[in-house]
Simulated assay, not measured.
Amino acid sequence: MKAATVSEIKKELKHRSPDELASLCLRLARFKKENKELLTYLLFESDSEEAFVEGVKEEMEAQFKLINTNSFFYIKKSVRKILRDVKKHIRYSPVKETEVELLLHFCSILKDFKPSIKRNTTLVNLYERQLQFIEKKVSVLHEDLQYDYTQELEALAL
């Protein structure tokens, strides 16, 4: 089965009633956890971006506390999983500052993580890549925000 294009779907949705649209959304939410999370963001959290960011930060901190620190293998696996979750939440929000803020928070937690990530090349490389990625994202923001975020970035440099 070939999927329809976004424009075709948009045209078809215009011809549907509100009840049909609601049932389609609910049916879509049943099939994938990400669809459900996106609908949750759009319906409940998009009004308050600050609360959304704080919630993701708290979740991130909780995940970092649960990391098995017995070996760097487990640490790397867990850090990658946390980063994947953060990037998934970033995709939900259209606000660019949210992306920068969440990634800065991720890097600050990772920098202060015990045992130190400096003892593992893979984690240091992951950290450095995220800092470079943040630099690119900061460059397209408003000048005042650029200054603030650049200050935070400089503080995070290893």
Rank of each mutant, 00 (worst) to 15 (best):
E99L: 00
M1H: 07
K65A: 05
A51P: 11
I90C: 14
L43Q: 12
F31E: 13
K65C: 03
T121L: 10
C107V: 01
A3R: 08
H89C: 14
L103Q: 01
S17Q: 11
I75W: 00
E97N: 02
R16V: 11
K118S: 09
I9G: 09
R84Y: 13
T69M: 06
L24N: 06
S139L: 10
S78L: 03
F72E: 00
N70E: 03
R119N: 07
I134D: 00
T150V: 03
N70T: 01
E61R: 01
D144W: 08
E8G: 06
E97S: 03
I117G: 05
E59D: 10
I117S: 04
A155D: 13
K10D: 13
K32D: 14
S108N: 02
K33T: 14
S7D: 14
L123I: 12
K14W: 13
A62T: 05
M60H: 04
L38W: 05
L26Y: 10
K137L: 02
T69K: 08
S48R: 11
R91L: 15
I90S: 08
V86C: 09
E59C: 07
I90L: 10
E45R: 10
E128D: 13
C107S: 03
I109P: 01
L104H: 00
V100M: 03
F31A: 09
K118L: 12
K76A: 02
E152P: 07
E59K: 12
I134M: 04
Q130P: 15
I9L: 14
E50I: 10
D112E: 12
A62I: 05
K65E: 08
L43C: 15
L110V: 00
T5F: 14
F106D: 00
N125I: 12
E61M: 02
K76Y: 04
A51N: 11
L66K: 14
K57P: 00
L83D: 08
L123K: 09
D148R: 05
K2L: 08
V95Q: 07
F133V: 10
M60N: 03
L26V: 11
V86M: 09
V100F: 02
L126T: 12
Q151T: 07
V53N: 00
N120L: 06
A51V: 11
L26E: 14
H89G: 09
A155F: 09
N70D: 03
S116G: 05
K36W: 06
E154N: 15
M60F: 04
E49A: 14
R84I: 12
K33F: 12
S7N: 13
K114Y: 06
K118P: 03
T40I: 11
